[in-house]
Design a protein around this nucleic acid. Structure first.
Lengths: 146, 146
DNA sequence: TCTTTATGGTTGCATAAACAACTATATGTC
DNA sequence: GACATATAGTTGTTTATGCAACCATAAAGA
């Protein structure tokens, strides 16, 4: 039942997120090297819009696990970069629907390829089975705390 | 040999670090609730000083996986909070040795207890064996990219 | 309908990160 | 010893986060 007893040391890098920080830095570096001038946080917003275009800021909050002010400002910056457009909803005037511009649509293929490449770099020497378990653990942690 | 073929979807939350973000938020919340007024980033610096007091900023960069400007400013803020003190090295005048104040020494027990509690909250329903594998994966990712 | 409450989004403020450029001191080489 | 190079730390700028407070609109309840 309880995890109370096991050894915690070395587990604190979990908290500081060294692994995901390292992945994020590498992805950013790979973007830059390819001449892609967006931040990974902006990319994470585009990623969800590529899956479904025209969703509200609130939906972006949930799918990117960010709070409302963060999304407001990421959308601000993406709008400045002419990557997305805010379109007021006709049904509910509180809602902004966020749409990709053609320019952002063009980034999908290249950036996803760079993301895949980055994951491959990250996972050298890790087996498929280990990855599956790590995914399960991280998913469970997220479910426990969200 | 190659991880090229396996399914990448759902793995992108690895990049965005949803799990470690969730842990960090919960730890911050637990600190706050206990009346501990430090950020988790400041805590991560103190954590390494509790393990070894009187190390240089450069050593803190390496152990916390942060760059030099980040450590400069974290130490700035910790100094304002009277948690640490910069002491110029006599051997090498480029170096600041960072020492805990008694006040910071007193925080160790309580904050580590809160960190353990947070990990327990995070790992509910996860087995010891799964945790070991997740640790190995994250460690390998870090080694691959650092 | 009028009032309360909930929801979607924005703004202000403090902290932190990434990157580049910089200063000061040490080390290595001729 | 003089000059080049490396190392330790700081500063400036842009972007992002977390939290609280706020505004506008919608939905629910009396």
């Amino acid at each position: 039942m309880s995890n109370n007893q096991f050894k915690k040391s070395e587990l604190y890098s979990f908290i500081t997120g060294k692994a995901s920080t390292a992945i994020a830095r590498r992805l950013q570096k790979n973007f830059k090297q390819a001449g892609l001038d967006i931040t990974i946080e902006q990319w994470s917003v585009l990623y969800h819009l590529w899956k479904e275009d025209g969703i509200s800021q609130q939906q972006l909050c949930e799918s990117t696990f960010r709070d409302k002010p963060s999304i407001t400002r990421l959308v601000d910056n993406l709008e400045k970069l002419k990557m997305v457009k805010r379109v007021p909803s006709k049904d509910d005037r509180r809602i902004n629907m966020i749409y990709l511009t053609p320019e952002a649509q063009n980034l999908q293929e290249q950036s996803m390829q760079l993301a895949n490449q980055t994951l491959n770099e990250a996972l050298v020497g890790v087996t498929h089975g280990q990855i599956e378990i790590a995914k399960e653990v991280l998913q469970q942690v997220y479910e426990n705390l969200k």
